[in-house]
Amino acid sequence: MSTTLRINGKTHQVDLPDDVPLLWVLRDEVGLTGTKYGCGVAACGACTVHINGEAVRSCQTTLADVDGEITTIEGLGTPKAMSIIQQAWVDHQVAQCGYCQSGQIMQAANLLTDNPTPSDADIEEVMQGNLCRCGTYPRIRAAIHSAAQKMQEA
């Protein structure tokens, strides 16, 4: 039952049943733990990754469903080479406990690809699926606006 996956530009062979959600393939098999388990029912967004650039909930995407290039938070940037959006998160000191932030950032990155200059209402619409129990929403919103501006300048 070997499956071939492309993750963050690298090829991985995994040997797990077809119905295992991508979340648990990434975390327990490939060792990419930046993508988080929060609810398992697509209600919190902590597990958000990109497949071919589109944000998906990896807890609801089975191994059999994966069709394309996967990008996780680790593929978006690294501590020494952060993406513009990750840098905006640092500039705005967004995180508290930080557990939901990988998913928030992946969702926000997709938002900015689709809509480079989102309004507050656009941000609320797209980000409402991502739960943060620490309540960091105002800083998330500010970081998205500031990343949008930086991307326009870049």
Partner: peptide
């Protein structure tokens, strides 16, 4: 500036659920 911020923006902060040890079972 918070010392944990870069780790938390890059998915590299280690939470309990992220601990990985050689030969570990789930």
């Amino acid at each position: 500036p918070r010392v944990d911020m870069i780790e938390k923006a890059t998915g590299t902060a280690e939470f309990g659920i992220d601990v990985r040890q050689p030969g570990m079972k789930f």
